[in-house]
Design a protein around this nucleic acid. Structure first.
Length: 173
DNA sequence: CCCTGATTCGC
DNA sequence: GCGAATCAGG
């Protein structure tokens, strides 16, 4: 699809109405939100009502795009400073690898040290400053293996009152 | 993870 | 001029 006058009109209209680029793209059809954004910029109507845009990022340098060379061969494996730079997602991965668990097994994690893949079983009173989480490794769920058992335990007969205190409670202490 | 707009640059 | 890739942020 191309940017016919009609389509540009629709674009302008929807953009002015506050629709997002992806919504506009979906309505127009045949274009991606990137195409819409690109067109919006080219039309010079980029910043509509954008009060919350004190987001001035430092100028982004040339795109370190690892694309194919014009001749189709693989570009020289030279690493530009940009490529050497650690990407955000990689930082996340590295951080995870570096500190699989900031706390030893069995130790509690605070809200600050609680990471993904850590048991989020609450320990203590949430209102208590010492409130913490289990923090052990949680493989495929929010809890470690042990807590997962009790967390996802099918609802059993509720003994009236405090018949069984041996059963773990969500909120201890 | 989902999403948003912004920017760059090969085409 | 176009828009994918990428970015920065919510």
């Amino acid at each position: 699809m191309s940017w016919t006058e009609e389509r540009v009109e629709v674009l302008k209209k929807l953009w002015a109405e506050g629709h997002s680029a992806s919504q506009i793209a979906k309505q127009l059809g045949g274009v991606t939100r990137n195409a819409v954004i690109g067109k919006v910029h080219r039309l010079g109507l980029s910043g509509r009502a954008t009060p919350s845009r004190p987001v001035k990022r430092p100028p982004r340098l040339a795109r370190p795009k690892p694309r194919l060379s014009p001749d189709g061969s693989v570009p020289a494996p030279i690493k530009s400073p940009e490529e050497t730079r650690i990407r955000r997602s990689e930082q996340h991965a590295i951080a995870s690898a570096l500190q699989p668990a900031p706390v030893a097994d069995g130790e509690a994690a605070t809200i600050l040290t609680l990471r993904d893949s850590m048991c989020k079983w609450p320990i203590g009173d949430p209102a208590d400053p010492k409130f913490a989480f289990c923090g052990r490794k949680s493989d495929c769920g929010p809890y470690c293996a042990e807590h997962a058992k009790v967390a996802f335990q099918p609802q059993r007969k509720r003994d009236r009152k405090n018949a069984s205190d041996s059963e773990p409670r969500r909120i201890a202490g």
